[in-house]
Computed example of a mutant assay.
Amino acid sequence: MATETPAILALDFDGVLCDGLLEYFQTSWRTYCQIWQPDNQTIPDNLDASFYRLRPVIEIGWEMPILIRALIQGVPENTIVADWSVVAQDIIKLDKLEPATIGKEVDSTRDEWIATDLEGWLALHRFYPGIIERLDQLLRSDNSTELFIVTTKEGRFVKQLLQQQGIQLSEERIIGKEIKRPKHETLRQLLGQYPGTLWFVEDRLKTLESVAEQPDLNNVRLFLADWGYNTKAQRDSVSRDSGISLLSLTQFVQDFEVWH
Rank of each mutant, 00 (worst) to 15 (best):
E133S: 10
V158F: 07
T145I: 08
L138N: 08
K177I: 10
P129K: 14
I132R: 01
F148E: 00
E171V: 15
T152E: 00
I149R: 01
A123D: 15
K159S: 13
Y128N: 07
I132A: 04
Q163D: 10
L169K: 05
L169V: 05
Q160Y: 07
Q168G: 07
T145Y: 09
D142Q: 14
R173K: 14
L147K: 02
L147H: 02
E154C: 11
L135F: 09
Q160W: 06
G166D: 02
E172A: 14
Q137T: 15
G155A: 15
T145E: 04
L124T: 10
D136W: 05
V150M: 07
H125L: 11
Y128V: 08
E146K: 15
R126F: 15
E171H: 06
E178T: 11
G155R: 01
L122G: 06
K153D: 00
I174K: 00
R140V: 08
T151K: 04
Q165T: 06
T152Q: 01
N143K: 07
Q163Y: 08
E133N: 06
I174H: 04
H125N: 14
D142V: 13
G176W: 11
E172W: 06
V158S: 05
R156V: 14
K153S: 01
I149K: 03
Q163W: 07
L118I: 08
L169T: 02
E146A: 13
G166I: 02
I132D: 02
E119C: 13
L118T: 10
T145K: 03
L135V: 08
Q160N: 08
V158W: 06
I174W: 03
S170R: 02
F157W: 12
I175P: 02
L169A: 05
I131A: 02
W121L: 08
L118E: 12
R140D: 01
Q160F: 09
G176Q: 07
H125W: 01
Q164F: 09
D136N: 14
P129G: 12
E178F: 05
F157K: 04
G130A: 08
L162P: 00
E178S: 14
D142H: 15
Q168D: 13
A123H: 13
R140Q: 10
G130F: 11
R126M: 11
E154Y: 13
V158K: 02
L169D: 00
T145P: 06
